Amino acid sequence: MDYVTFIKEIKEKVEELVQENLEDCTVFVHDIIKNNNVRMRAISIERKNDMATPNIYLNDYYSQFKKGRNIDDISKEIFEVYLDSSKGLINEVNINDLRNFSKVKKRIFYKLVNYNMNREMLKTTPHVRVLDLAIVFYILVSYREGAQAVTMIRDSNIKEWGIDLSRLCVTAYENTWTKYHPVIRRMEDIISEMILDSIVGDERDEDNDDGDLIKEETCYGGYTYAQVEDMVKEEMEKVKLDRNMEMYVMTNEDKSNGAACILYPGVLKKFADKVGQDIYIIPSSIHEVILIPAMGWDTKEIDEMIREVNRTQLDPVEILSDHVYVYKRETEELGY
């Protein structure tokens, strides 16, 4: 079965489930142009008067189908994903509000995208260019933990609102800096947490501070969570000393579009002053960046590493840039 036929059959099966369980709903398949001009086919279930509805992408499901998963099973999962995603996703902005700047101005935020990879989108989108990046703006339509619905702000929006780009920038900057606080953590702390999660799983009792013994088959046997945690941290410190390098990850508290934190006022300066050096900024994704105290490395080699990771390891939608940035502590400038 080819992709077109697969989509047709999935849509029919999902429509059957919707008709049996919901009222006033429409099922439709459409193309979504995402960040970096990535085009993806999605299925959506739209209820009457809904401002936002989850887009459920079909490419991965087609891969599962080709590996033997059946249509009925996939269709049921898509329907369940819709129910789960829409359960707590409350529409906080209705369609009429979008035409009134005063009603949406507190919900306007910004994020960073790659300029060249989004040239087509930027033709009709207000933006500010920064190096090889662009600041773009969006309205947070609805939100719940782990999920949010947004709509990009277009040239037609600010024209209808009667505002200019400068007013939009001031509004978005203030809202973003206030809501999405920056977070900087040591890389080894993040890796330690990942290792601990893989070792103990759900065995740790979050409400028990006494350090219950971890089940023997889960880790090393006979050790408390605190003891295992200390061992992992000790090993990570050895790795750091061997490499003689400090690495930090910067994102925001939501871990979404956190690369925008590099433009927060004073954030890079405060960090550079703390480590007493210029800073290399590796754009690991649109959601986070890696900060490394400058050590005189060849930035062209770092660029090659970034390009390799972007092309082989990262979802194309999440690529931010192929270049490392340098923050100069003395001049307080961000550049290549």
Rank of each mutant, 00 (worst) to 15 (best):
K8R: 09
D24F: 03
D31F: 10
I32T: 06
K34Q: 12
N35I: 04
N35L: 00
R39N: 15
M40H: 06
R41W: 00
S44A: 12
R47H: 05
A52M: 03
T53E: 01
T53K: 02
I56K: 02
I56L: 12
D60R: 14
D60H: 14
S63C: 01
S63Q: 13
K66A: 09
I71L: 15
D72Q: 14
D72W: 11
D72I: 12
D73S: 15
I74Q: 06
K76S: 09
I78H: 03
I78C: 12
V81R: 01
S86G: 00
N94H: 03
N96W: 01
D97G: 01
R107I: 01
L112P: 04
R119I: 13
M121N: 05
M121C: 08
L122P: 11
K123P: 09
T124I: 11
T125M: 15
V128R: 13
L131W: 10
L133H: 14
S142A: 13
V150G: 00
D155A: 12
S156D: 12
D164N: 14
S166W: 09
C169P: 03
T171N: 00
Y173L: 03
Y173Q: 05
E174D: 10
Y180P: 00
V183D: 01
R186C: 03
I190A: 09
I191M: 13
M194E: 15
M194N: 14
S198I: 07
V200L: 11
D202V: 09
D202P: 01
R204L: 11
N208V: 04
G211L: 07
E216M: 11
Y220V: 15
D230S: 15
E235G: 15
E235H: 13
K238T: 08
V239D: 07
D242L: 07
R243W: 03
M247Y: 04
M250Q: 01
T251V: 01
E253M: 02
E253D: 10
K255R: 14
A259N: 02
A260D: 07
K270I: 06
A272H: 09
K274V: 07
D278G: 06
Y280R: 12
Y280I: 12
S284Y: 04
S285I: 04
P293S: 06
M295E: 06
W297K: 13
E301Y: 05
E301P: 06
E301C: 03
I302A: 04
I306F: 07
N310S: 08
T312A: 11
T312S: 13
P316R: 02
S321P: 08
H323L: 07
Y325K: 08
E332N: 15
E332M: 12
E332L: 13
Y336N: 14
